[in-house]
Design a protein around this nucleic acid. Sequence first.
DNA 1: GCAAGGTC
Length: 890
Amino acid sequence: MGIRVFNVAEKHSVARDVSAILARNQGGLRSRDGRYRKWHSCDPLDLYHAPVKKHVPQDKLNIKQTLEEEARKCQWLILWLDCDREGENIAFEVVQVCTEANRQLNVWRARFSSIIEREIHQSIQRLGRPNQLFSDAVDVRQEIDLRIGASFTRFQTMLLRDAFVLDFAADGRNVILSYGPCQFPTLGFVVERYWEIQSHEPEEFWTINCTHNSDDCIASFNWMRGHLFDYTCAVIIYEMCIQEPTATVTQVRQRETLKRPPHPLSTIELEKRASRYFRMGAKQTMKVAEELYLSGFISYPRTETDSFSPETDLHTIVQDQQQHPVWGSYAQRLLDPGEGLWRNPSNGGHDDKAHPPIHPTKFSGGESSWTPDHHKLYELVVRHFLACVSQPAVGAETTVDIDIAGELFSTTGRVILAKNYLEVYRFESWGGSIIPTYTQGHQFIPTTLTLDSGVTRPPPLLSEADLMECMDKAGIGTDATMHDHIQKLLDRYYATKDMNTTRFTPTHLGEALVMGYDDMGYELWKPYLRAMMESDMKAVSIGTKNKAEVLATCLQQMKACFQDAKLNKAKLFEAMDVFFERANRPVGNEQHTFGEVVRRCDRCQESDMVLKRKPDGNFMVGCLGYPQCKNVVWLPGPISEASVTTTVCSTCTPGPVFMIQFKFRRLEIPMHFSTEHLGCVGGCDDILKQLIETCGTGSRDILGVSGRGRGSNTSSSNVQQSIPRQRTCTNCRQTGHTSNNCPSQASRSRSARSQGTNQQGEPSIPCGTCGNPCTLRTANTESNRGKKFYSCQGCNFFIWEDVYNERNAPSSNHSNRASAQSRRGGRGRGGRSGRSASNTNGGNFVSARSVTNTNGGNFVSATGEPITDRRCFICQDPSHFANVCPSRGM
DNA sequence: GCAAGGTC
C-alpha cells in the first residue's frame, strides 16, 4: 500500500497548480489574551508581560477541522507554504494542528521559488524538514510588534484623545492614535521632510548663461562656476564678459556613453514605477498585480528579489511574447542572435530566496475583463522583463568647453547611436540634444549672454515613490506591507496625500505626535528600532541569537522606554497644545487610567485595582473595570508620594495585595506618625485608618470634581467603609475650609507665578496650565532615578527641573510655539526668512538683467533696446566698469 | 478599539 500524502499550501492558487502539475504524471493562528483585550482591563504597561496565547479564530475553525480530518487519513504531510520566514511560521502552525490530530505524521517541507512544472518536480525530489529557526524569528517579531503596538497605542490614545479638540474627524472621541514600529517611522519620514521644507530659507543666487545658434541648432552653455550668491561679484564678472564677449572653443571631447536597462523587477520597484509612470497608488498597484498573479499572467508579485537565478529559462518567457501585436516583433529580434540585442539580466543584489523577480508567466494580448490598470501593469511587467534581457542604449556624447573673457562655460550634446532596450521600454527616455559642430580654437559671438537670478528651493514633499524608497532603505515593512503602512498614515489622520502630485504632508496630529516624542528625546519615530529588530530577527533565523534572549532584551528596553514616555507625557501635551485647543468637555477617566497595580479587584475579580493620582493631586486605589465596577479605596489626604512596592501583604486575601510606600506631609499629620509608611489597602492597616480619621481622605467630591462612586455601597474596602471623610483645602491641604476661603490665598496670589515653596515648605512653581502649585519631586523609575521634576497638583502638567530652569533663565524666551518654530526653522532661524526672495515663476530663473545679441554684434537689452547705458554697476560712474571700480579698493 | 505579517 502506497503512502498517502497530505499537501498543504498557503494560497489556493499554489494548491491548485501544484496538484495539477503532480496529478498530470499520475488560515492561520492569531494571538490574543482574553483578560487583557479590553482597553481598561489593565495598565498598558502590563502588556509587556501579559501572556500571549495563540488560538484559531472562530471563522477559521473550519480550516482547522479540515486539516485535522485530512491529517488523520495520511502518513505524510508536505508543506507547500511560501518559502520565506513568514511562510515557515505558518508551516509550523499547520504542523501543530496536523500533528495534534495524527502524532505519526511524517512532516516534510517543499521548497520552491516559482510554480512551474520543472521546479515543482524538483522540490518533490528534494524534500526537507521545516526550519524552526525561521519560524522562531517570526514569533519574536509578532510578539514584539503586538506588545509595543498595543501598549503605545492605548497609552497615547487614552492620554490625548479626550484632552484635545480633534476637529478633523467627525467624531474625535473615536479617533485612534495608533503607534506601530512600522507606521510611526513611516510618519517620521513624512514629518522630517516637511520640517526640512519649513526650515528652508530661500537664498538668491546669480549665474551667467550663454547660448549660441548655429547650423540650425542651439547650444546652451553652462557657467563652470555654477552660481554665485554674491550679486556684486556676479555682476563684475558678467560685465567683464560683456566687455569682451568673443567665445573661444578651448576643448571638444567625444565619448561613447551607455544607459543601462533596469534590474529585474521587485515589488518595491513595481510600486515605484507604477506610481511614477501611471500615477497609480501603491495600494492599487498591489491589488491589480495580485489579480494578474491569481489569473496566471505574472509571477508572484510580492518579492524582494531583483536578480534571476541562472536556472530560469529566460528565452521561453521571451518566446511567449513574440505574438504580441505591439512588442512581439521586439521579442522576436531579442531571440535572433544575429541582432545582438540579447544580454543576460543584471543582478540587483537582492534575493529573498523565496520568489523570482516579477515577470510575465503567460501571454496575453489583453483580456476583455481587464481594466485599464490591468493593461498598464501587465504591459509594464512585460516591457520591464524584455528590457532586462536587452543591451543598454548607446549614445555619443560631445562636450564643448569655451572661454569668454577668462570665464569658462561648457555644453554637452548627445546623439543616440543605438536605442536597444529603450525601444521596448517606452517609459524611459534619454534626453539627447544636438549641438552645432565646434572645433578647438574656433571663435564665435554668443547669441545671448545673460546674468540670471534664481533662488534656492527646498526639496519637494515626499512622493509615494520617495516614501517607499525611504522605507526600503531603512527596512520598514515588507514588499507586501509597505503600501499598507502608507495607507495607515492616511487612515489615522497622520498625513494627507495630494491627489495631483501624490505627495504627502503631515497633519497637525502627525506632526504633534512626532514632535512630542522628539521632545522627550526618543527616536521612536525614527527607523532605528525596526532596523534593530530586523537584524535580531535575522540573527534568530540563522541561529546566532537565541529567541528568548532577543525577546527579553528587546521587551525590557521597550518597557523602560514606555515607562519613560508615561513619565514624560507632558511633552506630548505640550506638542499637542501647539496645534489643538484643549477640550472643554470633562476628560474621561482615560487620562488618569494608568497606575501601578495593587491587587486584583476583590469585587469584580476581573480587573486590577491600581494606585492613581487624581487631577486634584490626591491618591486613590481604584478598579480599572470602572464604570462597570466602582470599587475604590480612598487614602489619607496628606500623602505627598505613594508608590506600589513588590512587597506582598501577609494578612489580606485574596492575594497578592502589594503594599504601598507612602510619604506624608509632615505638617498635615499628627507628630507621632512617621512621614514614611509601608502600608496596605487590603483592610489590615490601622495606621492608614487612623490617618484617614484624623486628616480625611483629601477627596474633592465636595467641589464637584471627583465623580466616581463613593457611597458606602460602592466599596468593599475596610478602610474606605469605616472612615468618614473630612473636607481638605486643595491649596493648603488643611481641613476646616476649602480653597475658596483658604487663608493662604491672599498672600499667595501675587507670587503665584513665581518659583518658591508651597505651604509645606516644598519647592514649588506655578503650573503653566492651571495655576496650581507644581511641587518638586524625584523620579524613581529605572532610567531617570534621582532626576528632579515638577509635577502639578491640579492637572497633568509636568516638567523636568532642569528644563524648567533652562526655560526660565533670564535670556530664554522659550515657548511651545517658539519651540515648534525653531524645530521647523532647523538651524534656529525661525521658519521662513524675512528675505522672501520668492521665486515668482515657479522655480525657473527670473532674469535680472539680460542682453541679447541679435543685431550683428551689438548687444541689445531683453526688450530689444540697444544698450547704451554701460555705467559701473556699483558707483554708477559711466567712465569705468565695476571690475575696476575704485570703490572696491582694488 | 491597538501591531505587523500572511491570505483573500
